[in-house]
Simulated scan of single mutants.
Amino acid sequence: MQLYNTMSAKEREALLEQAGEDRLTLSFYQYAHIGNPELFRNHLFIAWDQMDVLGRIYVAKEGINGQLSVPAKNFQEFKNFMDGIYFLNDVRLNIAVEQDLKSFLKLKVKVRHKIVADGLDDDTFDVTDKGIHVGAEQFNALIDDPDTVLVDMRNHYESEIGHFKGAVTPDVDTFRDSLPIIEEDLKEHKEDKNLVMYCTGGIRCEKASAYYKHKGFKNVYQLEGGIIEYTRQVKEQELENKFIGKNFVFDHRRSERISEDVISNCHQCGKPCDTHTNCENEGCHLLFIQCEECAQKMEGCCSSECQDIIHLPDNEQKALRKGKHNSNKIFRKGRSEKLAYKQSV
């Protein structure tokens, strides 16, 4: 049984360009109790591969989290398949604000210990006992209330380029880092404040809402569908948009523009900029913000050291990378000493 991609990313990219067919980038998640994640993973891969679905999907005993690219012509078939799974029937499908044929180039369905790593080891914590979901209109009203604390449940490199006005934006590298920090900062307000949380599509703040309820917070809310769904509702209902800047996304696009505000700066020269890139040196692959001028001057690299490396023969570059691997440190290195402006502030 073939449960892997036989086509490389480059081959897939060329095929998509040649076909020129519309595709929909979307995301979804659902917390549920899945008895056999491996069997469920196989079922999903076989069905979606036949529909030419691409993307990155995680399955665990606590549920499923997916970011996908679906051929527009196959969307109804995909939706019917999802509705045939009892806990995914009518699950919210967050359609991307901006579309891109090449948002994903492979289909990867992986079994994980958890769909959102939280660092928690608590058998009494039920992730399905979540807080109150609110839509864009109620969310706007809540965050205008002086008795509300609005918290961004994303990481520093996400909130740096865009966030809601007045939000607390923890300076953290991972979701698991934010949970104890927020609990400690707000421990005196478990009963007298509204704790309102948001994230990209809802998956992180849904787990956080269940966690903080478990920890004794009385008035816990989350933005339903996250920033992606908020943006759609604001446009459809002609509401005030309280999000400024860009929404960071975890595919080849890296971000979607929500407002025209540019609230961040190039990590190399300090010029207003909100464009993320990955260092061209494959042995570094650092995620950082780089303006067009610095991208041209530095050839897409984070430092002169990496710039020198990309001009070496391929075999020498591979030798330098041997025995090393990239991890989520590529995000943490947004604080790298190689980035002059970032270090200065």
Results as ranks from 00 to 15, higher is better:
residue 67 Q to N: 08
residue 228 I to H: 08
residue 92 R to Y: 15
residue 281 N to L: 00
residue 71 P to V: 02
residue 34 I to C: 02
residue 263 I to F: 13
residue 21 E to M: 12
residue 276 H to C: 04
residue 334 G to M: 13
residue 21 E to V: 07
residue 105 L to M: 08
residue 191 E to Q: 13
residue 3 L to K: 14
residue 272 P to H: 06
residue 277 T to D: 07
residue 205 C to I: 00
residue 234 V to D: 03
residue 110 K to E: 09
residue 154 R to L: 05
residue 184 E to I: 00
residue 222 Q to P: 04
residue 29 Y to A: 03
residue 17 E to K: 09
residue 212 Y to P: 11
residue 282 E to A: 09
residue 308 D to C: 03
residue 331 F to A: 01
residue 53 V to A: 12
residue 112 R to K: 15
residue 254 R to T: 14
residue 151 V to I: 15
residue 65 N to R: 08
residue 215 K to Q: 15
residue 209 S to L: 09
residue 210 A to G: 11
residue 260 E to S: 13
residue 256 E to F: 09
residue 329 K to W: 11
residue 235 K to F: 08
residue 324 K to A: 04
residue 156 H to G: 00
residue 299 E to F: 07
residue 157 Y to T: 06
residue 337 E to S: 13
residue 224 E to A: 02
residue 230 Y to N: 04
residue 183 E to I: 07
residue 107 L to S: 09
residue 181 I to Q: 08
residue 78 F to T: 01
residue 315 N to D: 15
residue 292 E to G: 00
residue 175 F to V: 10
residue 56 R to H: 12
residue 93 L to C: 14
residue 115 I to C: 02
residue 295 A to P: 00
residue 319 A to W: 02
residue 317 Q to R: 14
residue 123 D to K: 12
residue 317 Q to L: 06
residue 210 A to Y: 08
residue 329 K to F: 14
residue 338 K to C: 08
residue 54 L to K: 13
residue 243 F to N: 04
residue 45 F to I: 00
residue 76 Q to V: 12
residue 18 Q to S: 13
residue 169 T to I: 03
residue 209 S to I: 08
